[in-house]
Design a protein around this nucleic acid. Structure first.
Length: 255
DNA sequence: AAACACTTCAACCGCAAAGGC
DNA sequence: AGCCTTTGCGGTTGAAGTGTT
């Protein structure tokens, strides 16, 4: 049952851990989280690695305040689907279910309270969609949980196939690559900011052999560790391609 | 300046679904 | 079909940040 024991690290992630995770996700793809957790040497559960990637490290994430358009969309979708945060998130490129959930809790709860106050002071006021969708949503509650499987936005697919092939067919390569990445990471000490780290980490593939893992993928071998997934992002319901130009290092939050 | 209240959001937990054997 | 492992989801918590008195 994985490595979930008391040796596991918990709590906030360090920059070092982030770098390490990003490196290994780019090698292994963002699927086999238990595998990544083991191979990377991170003392984190696969679950924790996934969460960190999905909510914080994914290259396509937007940061900052919700735009009015996004707010309206959330409201509209929540009215429709209730607390189906991941489903709502798929319609809001760059936003995660966690982010939307948090946003809803803080902002909408506030609005609900205000609304409640307004209602108690003037009982004749009938409701708007905001309050009703916050307090209950019977249509949603009765909805079956199974439905057509949509591809999650943070599911980059990535180089999973390539990575798996390399790892499984060439155990030695896996070890040496992992070692290379780790030693590269060890040399990242002494940076003043994450920006510097991100800048340098893009060079890892040249300097430390990640490129060898990407070998069979040469046509699309990324110039940056992020690029591999960007063109596949934001295909929302087969619609437009969104956020193509997003670039994680500028996108990340300053720590 | 300090103490307290409130807000934000990263991360955890438990559960259920999905997938593999 | 049944068991086991992994993944994904929604709810919740708590530390850190910010505002107010």
């Amino acid at each position: 049952m994985g490595q979930e024991n008391n040796m596991m690290r918990k709590g906030p992630w360090t920059e070092q851990e982030d770098i390490q995770l990003v490196s290994f996700v780019n090698m292994c793809g963002d699927r086999r989280w238990d595998f990544i957790a083991k191979v990377s040497g991170l003392k984190r559960s696969g679950k924790s690695c996934r969460l960190r990637w999905v909510n914080y490290l994914h290259p396509g994430l937007k940061r900052g305040k919700m735009t009015p358009q996004e707010e309206r969309r959330i409201l509209e979708l929540h009215t429709k689907w209730g607390n189906r945060w991941s489903k709502i998130a798929r319609k809001l490129p760059g936003r995660t279910d966690n982010e939307i959930k948090n946003y809803w809790r803080t902002h909408m709860r506030k609005k609900a309270q205000e609304k409640k106050r307004a209602l108690s002071s003037s009982p004749s006021v009938s409701d708007s969609s905001i309050y009703s969708s916050i307090t209950s949503n019977p249509t949603v509650d009765s909805m079956p949980m199974t439905e057509t499987k949509e591809r999650s936005f943070y599911d980059t697919g990535g180089l999973e196939m390539v990575a798996i092939t390399n790892f499984e067919c060439d155990n030695y390569k896996m070890k040496s690559t992992a070692t290379s990445v780790n030693s590269a990471i060890e040399q990242q000490d002494g940076y003043n900011s994450m920006d510097e780290i991100w800048k340098d980490i893009t060079l890892l593939d040249d300097d430390y052999g990640i490129a060898s893992v990407f070998g069979t993928y040469s046509e699309t071998t990324p110039s940056s560790i992020w690029d591999y997934s960007l063109n596949t992002l934001w295909m929302v319901d087969g619609q437009e391609e969104i956020g193509k130009n997003m670039y994680f290092p500028d996108n990340k939050r300053a720590i």
